[in-house]
Write a protein that binds this DNA or RNA. Sequence first.
RNA 1: GCGCCUGUAGCUCAAUCGGAUAGAGCGACGGACUUCGAAUCCGUAGGUUGGGGGUUCAAUUCCCUCCAGGCGCGCCA
Length: 524
Amino acid sequence: MIRQELKNILQKIFPDEDIVIDYVPKEKQGDYSTNIAFRIAAQKKKQPYEIAQEIASLIQHPMIESISVHKPAFINFTIANGYILKKLFSEPDTIDLGKGQKIMIEFVSANPTGPINIASARAAAVGDSLIKLLNRTGYEAVSEYYVNDGGRQSSLLAESVKQRIKELNGKSADIPEGGYHGEYIIDLAREIREKGIADIEKIKEYAIDYFIEGHKRILQEFGVEFNNWIRESSIYEKGYVDEVLGLFQEKKLTYVKDGAVWLRTTEFGDKEDRVVITSDKRHTYLLPDIAYHLDKMKRQYNRLINIWGPDHQAQIRSLQSGMMALGYPRGMLEVLIVQQVHLRKAGKLIKMSKRAGVLKTLEELLKHIPKDVVRFFLVMRSNSQHLDFDLDLALKQSDENPVYYVQYAHARIKSIIKKAQEQGIECCNSFAKDLIKEKEEITLAKAILRYCEVVEDAARNFEPYMLAYYLIELARVFHYFYQKLRVIGENKKLTQARLALINRTAETIKSGLEILGVSCPERM
RNA sequence: GCGCCUGUAGCUCAAUCGGAUAGAGCGACGGACUUCGAAUCCGUAGGUUGGGGGUUCAAUUCCCUCCAGGCGCGCCA
């Protein structure tokens, strides 16, 4: 990576400084810049601008075409064209942020009590892209889906289904308080009734399997496949819940108050202690949750990441405290909050209410909107941003839709390459590199080379949207290039050179879209 | 009341770890196809970065405070 190489050069001169390399905002003033002069100036009590000039005069390197100093005291580097082209057609850089660390991301983990909604779909899109990003940056990343098949919710589900079966049999239904009213429950009840299942435990089992299979199917359609599916019941079966409780008691981290068992989570930074066993001897969700994370740790991960919705914000501290109570260091578990999604139609937000049973499901969404559009839209915003999903825009098959904008650039390139082939000109990487020197060509080449830097940034920040933005930008640079210069022309050597350049562009777009789970058609 | 998130152009959002004259898309207006895909490109207009303080050579970014919106705050999950 050019950014890293520049950093190394400066690091040699200033071994004790934290070197920062930024992109230059104005194209004409260079490619990369550093603010090192500001830091040095403060120490040496000299004018930053002077220092910048001194430093600039010290640096000389074949990859650097020129160095300039800009107001207040930025040192800007312009990379030599020859170096750019050499890098562009040599082996791509490998990024090793992870250094082989095993990292697990748990996401979606929607309860098996209903269909997958759009908020979970966002988590699925972000999580899946993150897995791919981390796997390309030196991590061994594994995805996991946790199924809450124990506890009260699944009992309520079973009871709700049972009541609906009663209703189908002509009696009146009495959905329990906190039960499930959605119409999808009626469909399920019909299915179970036809199978002649009546025992409440069997109903529960059937219902949970039904939802898990449904989730698997729709996620697969969405391009998201998990490495592991883990059930809460398996955590109990392994005895981890009791093990965790025993460990806490051994460490004297629990106490009894008002007939309930409390965990001293405040010792690890929680706001208040938490109940782990209620006064009527049931586990709260926290205990099996901690046990589940013990299970994760027993599987030898170096780091755990959970992707949660904003409604679970308050639980983060408790769970992290629980992990620390088990003896794991702070920071072993990181929880990413991915904010909610609002559907927008005709400029207005659509209100969603889960309780009323009116929920926008991923399945419904995919019936109307192509998968590629949904995937791209759901990773277009930073995790902490609320996301407006514009249904009208998503349905537009035109220039306004950024997915097609990016895909179109790729298809356009493929079409040009095909046309060249028909004229007997093959695309290969051995050509006279000095033929590439037009401004638009160099800008495109530089944009392509930024790809691995963007992948690194996106992986480091756990933010796939950075990649989505980059791809739009790369497509823009290409479209501009296309408008200005002809690829296929009289000069065969020049044609070959430009073919190679746009071929690299296409490869980069394809690689990026793959990470985002978006297809990359050759024709549209 | 407390915690977390958000507030940037008419709308949806960027702005890398605190950096340069705050940028894109959409919408509006005006242009560009006898030539590789017009699902494209170019130009114009549009801003007191919610308000006010502070820290700094430098604040959209960090701190304090106020205002507005969202999500939480259970011996539910």
